[in-house]
Design a binder for these strands. Structure first.
Length: 155
DNA sequence: GCCAACGTTGGC
DNA sequence: GCCAACGTTGGC
């Protein structure tokens, strides 16, 4: 069982959107490093749903991987914002997974809090210039973020 | 809105 | 294969 952090702009697709749909395809990834992480995912993996470009940005909820990786259909849709003319049907470049909403976090854990926690100093999302939209999360980081969500934030 | 970080593209 | 130019991400 692995853990991941997945970024989304809440104006585009938020944790609330996912809760309403319950299951959604995580499509549109067009970065090779992120795609390679998608390929490693397995059903049941834990997901930290991260809101980027938000006020505040941070871990907004929990989800889980609900399907094995499969070709991302949007890469073949001419006119779609994520259409990739170089991707071939017989050898798709991009993949997606289905994700399922999980129990709500007690509260949003803001990026500033993650950065202020020495236990998370190695966490990818707190590193400067960390733009990758899909990141691996260690078991201890996962536990720590869940613990923070249960605790009262420091002021 | 600014801009640092960093991935991608394309000329050479 | 190098690297400058360009585009995107995302915090602030």
């Amino acid at each position: 069982m692995a853990y991941w952090l997945m970024k989304s702009e809440p104006d585009v697709f938020s944790i609330e959107h996912l809760r309403r749909k319950n299951v959604a395809g995580w499509d549109g990834v067009r970065n090779y490093q992120a795609r390679n992480f998608l390929r490693e995912m397995a059903v049941g993996d834990g997901l930290l749903f991260y809101h980027s470009g938000a006020e505040p940005s941070g871990v907004a909820g929990l989800a889980e991987v609900a399907s094995a990786p499969s070709p991302d259909p949007t890469q073949f849709v001419r006119g779609h914002a994520r259409f990739d003319p170089r991707s071939k049907r017989e050898d798709p470049t991009w993949v997606q997974v289905e994700v399922r909403a999980k129990a709500k976090l007690a509260r949003l854990v803001a990026l500033a809090e993650l950065k202020a926690n020495p236990a998370l100093a190695q966490m990818r999302v707190v590193q400067q210039g960390s733009r990758l939209s899909i990141q691996p999360v260690s078991a201890s980081e996962w536990q720590e973020v869940l613990r923070m969500a249960r605790a009262t934030p420091k002021k």
